[in-house]
Design a protein around this nucleic acid. Structure first.
Lengths: 122, 122
DNA sequence: GTAGTGACTTTTATTTTGCAAGTGACTAAT
DNA sequence: ATTAGTCACTTGCAAAATAAAAGTCACTAC
């Protein structure tokens, strides 16, 4: 189930092939907020099912958005951290937050730190 | 299947409840590019299945992102146009395009008109 | 009257999701 | 030493979503 061919060369469709589902961006949000461990992701209020979480973490690493690091040998435990590629989705999530705060009632205002962070160049 | 309760008050999770699937943002992209008719959406290169298209158009109108207008009586024909709420997703799609153009090889560079358009205020 | 188009709906099949339970490695408590 | 518990998953299975194909209904063009 590796993404070999996108549906089209459209940047939007291609991005959706990677993160276009109900859960992937929620996990990336958590990673951007400093979470890195399975139980931290599982503890988020949306309540991601554990099988979906495991599958998404695998897909994120396979698609180069995150990296898996062993941080403890016995028992083996892993951290999942965003790669540069994954972390650069921040502006997308920031725009989503801006939109939601305007158009969906009662959504949380994200921490200033989250909204102020900038991608490096461009 | 109306969205009554979001999974959480998180703006990201709430937005994904509305547009977090493989097709909705592709349809919104087409609307932002001036397409408004069923056959125009169906003709896009991603090849959305017609049952999914019909269901998405219904959901978009139900969630207030688009509006359905009769433009011809015999036979009845409809146009689907973004509401203000829907059109304000433009900055999200622009950021997705920026990200994809950097991180996914061979994605189309969107028309300058699409990238330069601005949301009104803020 | 035959063919074709537009906007769908229906049918059927495949894939994804979600819930529950299970597993193996270890840790802490009794 | 047995028991219970946590962590990071995996497995099994039912339900929902998605997809491909075909069907429908109202027209229009020839």
């Amino acid at each position: 189930m590796v993404v070999n061919f996108a549906r089209s060369p459209c940047p939007i469709a291609s991005t959706l092939d990677l993160v276009g589902d109900r859960w992937t961006l929620v996990v990336i949000r958590d990673m951007l907020n400093g979470k890195s461990r399975y139980n931290e992701f599982a503890a988020s209020p949306e309540g991601i099912p554990t099988n979906i979480l495991a599958e998404r973490l695998k897909r994120l690493t396979e698609s180069g958005l995150a990296e898996k690091h062993l941080y403890q040998e016995h028992p083996p435990r892993f951290e999942y951290r965003l790669t540069h590629k994954g972390a650069e989705l921040l502006p997308v999530l920031q725009e989503i937050c801006r939109w939601a705060n305007v158009h969906i009632p009662d959504t949380w205002i994200p921490p200033t730190a989250f909204m102020r962070k900038r991608r490096k160049s461009n």
